[in-house]
């Protein structure tokens, strides 16, 4: 008992129980270079793609900001192959920087409507193929 007490008083174990696991409320989801990647920065294409991808909806306001940022970034890094985020700004565009919940409501504002043709390609009507038209014309007979 006594030796243990003395030992505990002098030794500081490095392993410590941190308590019950808590997930931080705000996790930074902005893209950063992978820890095992050879470079410390992501290719320019990451910023370019993400800035282009955000066009409509609740992200629209952000898009304008990020678009401006992208322009600034591109100007700053025109000579280099990678984009380093300016201090205080979201790197590599707005996507991924915030969770979906933080981005707010996905419904359009009152009186506003989304035009299907403005949506990303996966949400648009798919073009009819020749085979499908044939199937309709033949009442399905061409499928067999």
């Amino acid at each position: 008992m006594q030796p243990t007490r003395i030992l505990r008083a002098t030794r500081q174990p490095l392993i410590k129980f941190l308590g019950k696991r808590n997930v931080p409320k705000n996790i930074d989801h902005t893209p950063h270079a992978h820890p095992a990647a050879p470079n410390d920065s992501l290719p320019e294409s990451f910023a370019q793609y993400r800035n282009r991808a955000i066009q409509h909806g609740p992200l629209g306001g952000q898009q304008q900001q990020t678009g401006q940022r992208a322009q600034q970034q591109q100007q700053q890094s025109s000579a280099s192959s990678t984009v380093a985020p300016p201090s205080g700004m979201e790197p590599y565009g707005g996507i991924g920087g915030k969770s979906g919940k933080q981005l707010g409501d996905i419904q359009p504002a009152k009186g506003q409507f989304f035009d299907r043709d403005e949506l990303p390609a996966r949400f648009r009507r798919r073009p009819f193929s020749e085979a499908e038209m044939e199937a309709v014309d033949s009442a399905g007979a061409s499928m067999w």
Binding site: P31, H32, P35, L42, R50, Y92, G96
Partner: peptide, 12 residues
């Protein structure tokens, strides 16, 4: 394939 720290490609 190039990814970020959350395994996302440039297409998130």
């Amino acid at each position: 394939i190039v990814i970020d720290s959350e395994y996302r490609t440039k297409i998130p």
